[in-house]
Protein backbone atom coordinates (compact mmCIF):
# COMPACT_ATOMS: atom_id res chain seq x y z
CA UNK A 1 0.00 0.00 0.00
CA UNK A 2 1.34 3.40 -0.96
CA UNK A 3 0.46 5.79 1.81
CA UNK A 4 -1.17 9.06 0.68
CA UNK A 5 -2.33 10.20 4.09
CA UNK A 6 -1.33 13.63 5.33
CA UNK A 7 -2.16 14.87 8.80
CA UNK A 8 -4.12 17.99 8.12
CA UNK A 9 -5.21 20.60 5.61
CA UNK A 10 -2.00 22.63 6.09
CA UNK A 11 0.09 19.68 4.93
CA UNK A 12 -2.38 18.87 2.19
CA UNK A 13 -1.99 22.30 0.60
CA UNK A 14 1.80 22.33 0.66
CA UNK A 15 3.13 23.79 -2.59
CA UNK A 16 0.03 25.79 -3.50
CA UNK A 17 1.20 29.19 -4.71
CA UNK A 18 -0.12 32.45 -6.07
CA UNK A 19 -1.07 32.34 -9.74
CA UNK A 20 -1.75 28.61 -9.91
CA UNK A 21 -4.62 26.88 -11.70
CA UNK A 22 -6.83 24.89 -9.33
CA UNK A 23 -9.67 22.45 -9.94
CA UNK A 24 -12.35 22.36 -7.24
CA UNK A 25 -15.03 19.69 -7.15
CA UNK A 26 -18.68 20.18 -6.32
CA UNK A 27 -21.98 21.11 -7.92
CA UNK A 28 -23.45 24.20 -6.36
CA UNK A 29 -22.50 23.72 -2.71
CA UNK A 30 -22.92 19.94 -2.94
CA UNK A 31 -19.64 18.10 -2.42
CA UNK A 32 -17.36 21.15 -2.34
CA UNK A 33 -13.92 20.78 -0.69
CA UNK A 34 -14.80 23.00 2.27
CA UNK A 35 -11.53 22.47 4.17
CA UNK A 36 -9.29 23.25 1.18
CA UNK A 37 -11.26 26.41 0.38
CA UNK A 38 -11.01 27.59 4.00
CA UNK A 39 -7.25 27.04 3.93
CA UNK A 40 -6.83 28.93 0.64
CA UNK A 41 -8.69 31.84 2.26
CA UNK A 42 -6.58 31.63 5.42
CA UNK A 43 -3.30 31.61 3.49
CA UNK A 44 -4.53 34.40 1.22
CA UNK A 45 -3.26 32.68 -1.92
CA UNK A 46 -4.30 34.87 -4.81
CA UNK A 47 -4.23 35.45 -8.58
CA UNK A 48 -5.84 32.04 -8.86
CA UNK A 49 -7.45 30.47 -11.89
CA UNK A 50 -10.25 28.26 -10.57
CA UNK A 51 -11.93 25.50 -12.54
CA UNK A 52 -15.22 24.74 -10.83
CA UNK A 53 -18.72 24.14 -12.20
CA UNK A 54 -20.10 26.95 -10.03
CA UNK A 55 -18.68 29.82 -8.03
CA UNK A 56 -20.35 29.20 -4.68
CA UNK A 57 -22.72 31.69 -3.07
CA UNK A 58 -21.79 35.09 -1.67
CA UNK A 59 -20.74 33.84 1.74
CA UNK A 60 -19.81 30.20 1.16
CA UNK A 61 -17.80 27.98 -1.12
CA UNK A 62 -15.74 29.81 -3.72
CA UNK A 63 -17.68 32.95 -2.77
CA UNK A 64 -15.28 33.18 0.18
CA UNK A 65 -12.31 33.46 -2.21
CA UNK A 66 -14.17 35.91 -4.42
CA UNK A 67 -14.93 38.16 -1.43
CA UNK A 68 -11.20 38.51 -0.82
CA UNK A 69 -10.50 38.93 -4.54
CA UNK A 70 -8.18 35.92 -4.58
CA UNK A 71 -9.52 34.68 -7.92
CA UNK A 72 -8.24 36.16 -11.17
CA UNK A 73 -10.11 33.87 -13.50
CA UNK A 74 -13.04 31.45 -13.18
CA UNK A 75 -13.80 28.61 -15.57
CA UNK A 76 -17.38 27.50 -14.85
CA UNK A 77 -20.65 26.51 -16.51
CA UNK A 78 -23.13 28.29 -14.26
CA UNK A 79 -22.52 31.20 -11.93
CA UNK A 80 -26.03 32.47 -11.27
CA UNK A 81 -26.13 32.27 -7.49
CA UNK A 82 -23.42 34.74 -6.60
CA UNK A 83 -23.92 38.52 -6.68
CA UNK A 84 -20.33 39.38 -5.85
CA UNK A 85 -19.26 37.19 -8.76
CA UNK A 86 -21.63 39.01 -11.11
CA UNK A 87 -20.38 42.39 -9.89
CA UNK A 88 -16.71 41.47 -10.39
CA UNK A 89 -17.43 39.99 -13.80
CA UNK A 90 -19.47 42.92 -15.12
CA UNK A 91 -16.87 45.41 -13.80
CA UNK A 92 -14.09 43.47 -15.51
CA UNK A 93 -12.18 42.66 -12.29
CA UNK A 94 -12.74 38.97 -12.82
CA UNK A 95 -12.03 37.07 -16.00
CA UNK A 96 -14.66 34.42 -16.72
CA UNK A 97 -14.65 31.55 -19.17
CA UNK A 98 -18.12 30.01 -19.38
CA UNK A 99 -17.99 26.44 -20.60
CA UNK A 100 -20.87 24.02 -21.25
CA UNK A 101 -21.23 21.71 -18.28
CA UNK A 102 -20.66 18.49 -20.20
CA UNK A 103 -17.62 20.00 -21.88
CA UNK A 104 -16.28 21.11 -18.49
CA UNK A 105 -16.67 17.57 -17.14
CA UNK A 106 -15.06 16.04 -20.21
CA UNK A 107 -12.12 18.50 -20.12
CA UNK A 108 -11.46 17.16 -16.61
CA UNK A 109 -11.91 13.56 -17.66
CA UNK A 110 -9.67 14.04 -20.72
CA UNK A 111 -6.90 15.40 -18.49
CA UNK A 112 -7.41 12.44 -16.14
CA UNK A 113 -7.38 9.95 -19.03
CA UNK A 114 -4.50 11.38 -21.08
CA UNK A 115 -6.43 12.77 -24.02
CA UNK A 116 -5.11 16.15 -25.23
CA UNK A 117 -8.48 17.20 -26.69
CA UNK A 118 -11.82 15.88 -27.92
CA UNK A 119 -14.64 16.83 -30.25
CA UNK A 120 -18.04 17.68 -28.82
CA UNK A 121 -21.24 18.91 -30.48
CA UNK A 122 -21.95 21.22 -27.51
CA UNK A 123 -21.62 24.89 -28.35
CA UNK A 124 -21.31 24.53 -32.11
CA UNK A 125 -22.76 27.64 -33.79
CA UNK A 126 -22.58 29.62 -30.53
CA UNK A 127 -20.01 32.06 -29.14
CA UNK A 128 -18.48 29.20 -27.15
CA UNK A 129 -17.06 27.86 -30.43
CA UNK A 130 -15.54 31.21 -31.47
CA UNK A 131 -11.93 30.74 -32.55
CA UNK A 132 -12.03 26.99 -32.03
CA UNK A 133 -11.40 24.29 -34.60
CA UNK A 134 -14.60 22.65 -35.85
CA UNK A 135 -15.03 19.49 -37.87
CA UNK A 136 -17.80 17.46 -39.45
CA UNK A 137 -18.33 13.81 -38.57
CA UNK A 138 -21.13 11.93 -40.34
CA UNK A 139 -22.96 15.09 -41.26
CA UNK A 140 -22.87 16.73 -37.82
CA UNK A 141 -20.58 19.55 -36.68
CA UNK A 142 -18.31 19.32 -33.64
CA UNK A 143 -16.02 21.67 -31.72
CA UNK A 144 -12.49 20.71 -30.65
CA UNK A 145 -12.01 21.27 -26.91
CA UNK A 146 -8.62 20.84 -25.19
CA UNK A 147 -8.15 18.98 -21.90
CA UNK A 148 -7.62 21.12 -18.81
CA UNK A 149 -4.16 21.64 -17.40
CA UNK A 150 -4.14 22.32 -13.66
CA UNK A 151 -1.64 22.41 -10.81
CA UNK A 152 -3.90 21.09 -8.05
CA UNK A 153 -7.27 19.37 -7.91
CA UNK A 154 -9.16 19.68 -4.62
CA UNK A 155 -11.89 17.12 -4.22
CA UNK A 156 -14.15 16.03 -1.41
CA UNK A 157 -15.36 12.48 -0.83
CA UNK A 158 -17.51 10.74 1.74
CA UNK A 159 -15.14 7.91 2.68
CA UNK A 160 -11.53 7.27 1.86
CA UNK A 161 -8.48 5.40 3.07
CA UNK A 162 -4.74 6.04 3.27
CA UNK A 163 -4.27 4.33 -0.11
CA UNK A 164 -6.26 7.21 -1.61
CA UNK A 165 -9.31 5.14 -2.51
CA UNK A 166 -12.50 7.19 -2.51
CA UNK A 167 -16.24 6.65 -2.20
CA UNK A 168 -18.67 9.49 -2.76
CA UNK A 169 -22.20 9.92 -1.47
CA UNK A 170 -25.24 10.79 -3.55
CA UNK A 171 -24.91 13.61 -6.03
CA UNK A 172 -21.78 14.87 -4.24
CA UNK A 173 -19.78 12.71 -6.65
CA UNK A 174 -20.35 15.16 -9.57
CA UNK A 175 -17.09 16.79 -10.72
CA UNK A 176 -15.11 15.43 -7.77
CA UNK A 177 -14.66 12.05 -9.43
CA UNK A 178 -13.67 13.56 -12.78
CA UNK A 179 -11.09 15.91 -11.28
CA UNK A 180 -9.15 13.13 -9.51
CA UNK A 181 -5.91 12.66 -11.39
CA UNK A 182 -6.72 15.54 -13.74
CA UNK A 183 -4.17 17.91 -12.14
CA UNK A 184 -0.49 17.52 -11.24
CA UNK A 185 -1.48 16.90 -7.63
CA UNK A 186 -4.89 15.70 -6.44
CA UNK A 187 -5.80 16.41 -2.84
CA UNK A 188 -8.80 14.57 -1.42
CA UNK A 189 -10.52 15.55 1.81
CA UNK A 190 -12.95 13.04 3.26
CA UNK A 191 -15.69 12.98 5.86
CA UNK A 192 -14.47 9.62 7.11
CA UNK A 193 -10.91 8.42 6.72
CA UNK A 194 -11.23 4.69 7.44
CA UNK A 195 -8.50 2.09 8.06
CA UNK A 196 -7.02 0.53 4.93
CA UNK A 197 -8.86 -2.69 4.12
CA UNK A 198 -12.19 -1.50 5.41
CA UNK A 199 -13.51 -0.25 2.05
CA UNK A 200 -14.79 -3.04 -0.19
CA UNK A 201 -12.64 -2.99 -3.37
CA UNK A 202 -15.83 -3.73 -5.34
CA UNK A 203 -17.32 -0.44 -4.27
CA UNK A 204 -14.43 2.00 -4.78
CA UNK A 205 -15.48 4.92 -7.02
CA UNK A 206 -11.96 6.34 -7.51
CA UNK A 207 -8.91 4.11 -7.13
CA UNK A 208 -6.10 5.57 -5.04
CA UNK A 209 -3.72 5.88 -8.01
CA UNK A 210 -5.56 9.10 -8.98
CA UNK A 211 -5.00 10.70 -5.57
CA UNK A 212 -1.69 12.04 -4.20
CA UNK A 213 -2.79 13.33 -0.79
CA UNK A 214 -5.72 12.47 1.43
CA UNK A 215 -6.75 13.85 4.80
CA UNK A 216 -9.55 13.64 7.33
CA UNK A 217 -11.64 16.78 6.88
CA UNK A 218 -13.19 18.64 9.80
CA UNK A 219 -16.22 20.79 10.63
CA UNK A 220 -18.24 20.14 7.48
CA UNK A 221 -21.12 22.57 7.18
CA UNK A 222 -22.64 20.92 4.06
CA UNK A 223 -24.91 23.85 3.47
CA UNK A 224 -28.12 23.28 1.47
CA UNK A 225 -28.62 25.85 -1.27
CA UNK A 226 -32.33 25.27 -2.04
CA UNK A 227 -34.16 23.50 0.74
CA UNK A 228 -37.26 22.03 -0.90
CA UNK A 229 -39.58 19.73 1.04
CA UNK A 230 -43.00 18.10 0.98
CA UNK A 231 -45.29 18.55 3.96
CA UNK A 232 -45.36 15.56 6.26
CA UNK A 233 -48.57 13.56 5.96
Amino acid sequence: MINKKVNNVEEALKGVENGMTLMLGGFGLCGIPENAIAELVKRNINELTCISNNAGVDDFGLGLLLQKKQIKKMISSYVGENQEFERQMLSGELEVELTPQGTLAEKCRAAQAGFPAFYTPAGFGTEVADGKETREFEGKMYVLEPAFKADFAFVKAWKGDAAGNLIFKGTARNFNANMCGAAKITVAEVEELVPVGELDPNNIHIPGIFVQRIFQGTNYEKRIEQRTVRKNQ
Partner: peptide
Protein backbone atom coordinates in the same frame (compact mmCIF):
# COMPACT_ATOMS: atom_id res chain seq x y z
CA UNK B 1 -27.65 38.79 -17.21
CA UNK B 2 -24.82 36.31 -17.45
CA UNK B 3 -25.56 33.22 -15.45
CA UNK B 4 -24.00 30.72 -17.79
CA UNK B 5 -25.31 27.90 -19.91
CA UNK B 6 -24.95 25.10 -17.37
CA UNK B 7 -25.78 21.88 -19.19
CA UNK B 8 -28.11 23.46 -21.76
CA UNK B 9 -25.62 23.59 -24.64
CA UNK B 10 -24.74 19.91 -24.23
CA UNK B 11 -28.41 18.98 -23.97
CA UNK B 12 -29.59 20.85 -27.06
CA UNK B 13 -26.59 19.78 -29.16
CA UNK B 14 -27.27 16.09 -28.63
Amino acid sequence: MVKGMGGAMDLVAS
